[in-house]
Design a protein around this nucleic acid. Sequence first.
DNA 1: TGCAGCATGTAATTTGTTACATGATTAA
DNA 2: TTAATCATGTAACAAATTACATGCTGCA
Lengths: 195, 195
Amino acid sequence: MDVKTLCLGLLSIQDACGYDLKKEFESIFKHFYSAGYGSIYPALADLAEKGLVSCREIPQDGKPDRKTYSITEAGRDAFEKALQNANPQHKMRSEFLAMLYFADLMEPERLQALLDNRVKALREAVLHIDRIEKEWGPDTSVGAQFVAGFGSAIAEAAAEYIESNRELLFEKEVEPTHLRNVPEDGKSKTVETRV
Amino acid sequence: MDVKTLCLGLLSIQDACGYDLKKEFESIFKHFYSAGYGSIYPALADLAEKGLVSCREIPQDGKPDRKTYSITEAGRDAFEKALQNANPQHKMRSEFLAMLYFADLMEPERLQALLDNRVKALREAVLHIDRIEKEWGPDTSVGAQFVAGFGSAIAEAAAEYIESNRELLFEKEVEPTHLRNVPEDGKSKTVETRV
DNA sequence: TGCAGCATGTAATTTGTTACATGATTAA
DNA sequence: TTAATCATGTAACAAATTACATGCTGCA
């Protein structure tokens, strides 16, 4: 499912121009898929060329003509076919985790900043999704609701994991957690990596 | 942080050939970053050309010469610089969630299969990470432990979210859960997927 | 005065994926 | 005998990112 197919899907809900689609991509989609003008506009041109969408140009003053795209019957068929894929990908490419893998090569302050920034970004993601959900009317599709909840739950879980386990990254190497005795001073830091 | 930089990072821990690095990428890395031979070999050639790694060719019988790469001082400097980035990306590109957004256009059986497959994949990811962790010695870096825990926690959270909320996807649209009263006749049949 | 929003796009570049191409050894 | 493991790579292709290019309106 590439940007082109996703544009087709969004057009199956509502007519839109490239600019509108970009805004859609900035809404809930941005939490699991991204697309910029550089891929949206060529995608629309391509869809139109293939007859999967039609285009009406509406003249405007001071702005370029607004090109409103509508999905065609052929387009709906093509999109339905795209939805048949039973094993769609779910890929993560995290430079953040890649860097953390090398945490022992980083200065503690930098590491702290890295973790702080990520937690902040994750909390903002949760808030962003909350705001989006509040704007949604009662007619919002169950699919949209489900993915919003998913994004929120995962971002929350990620933030919590980081906050609960970040101290592990600042420990002196060598001994694994399960062999270490709790120090008598009562400072419990049983940093459990996982359940 | 591209494949090239990541190869450099792995070489900062241990000398390796392209084949070895691929195996590293199949280990814990695969849960947040992917790379195939098609990107690893060109990356190594490029790093060598730039003097960030050196290469010893060890003749073998029946196999191509094994090229063992070692990081150079310049390479270590370059990698440390790469680790200074305070806001590394953390991107998800999920065709799975993209499809689910359009759940109301899918046949229930297909939707079920989709969800089943994803949950299965997530549970397998958790098991895979467990196995990796068990193979790790006590000298394993805290960074590695942290990212393994992260991957596991997120996969677990995702699987749980799906299992707890999948029924939402099979409800008849229109009214949001918290406002809906149980209809007297028990029959709600407004299927009307927009066409 | 300057910036955000509206609205279009192209072109170069980067990056990664997939398929191709080779070939010996070893365990099931 | 078939598949997996070891071990190297290239070339064509796909896809998306980034920078570029334009220009009006309305608000602070």
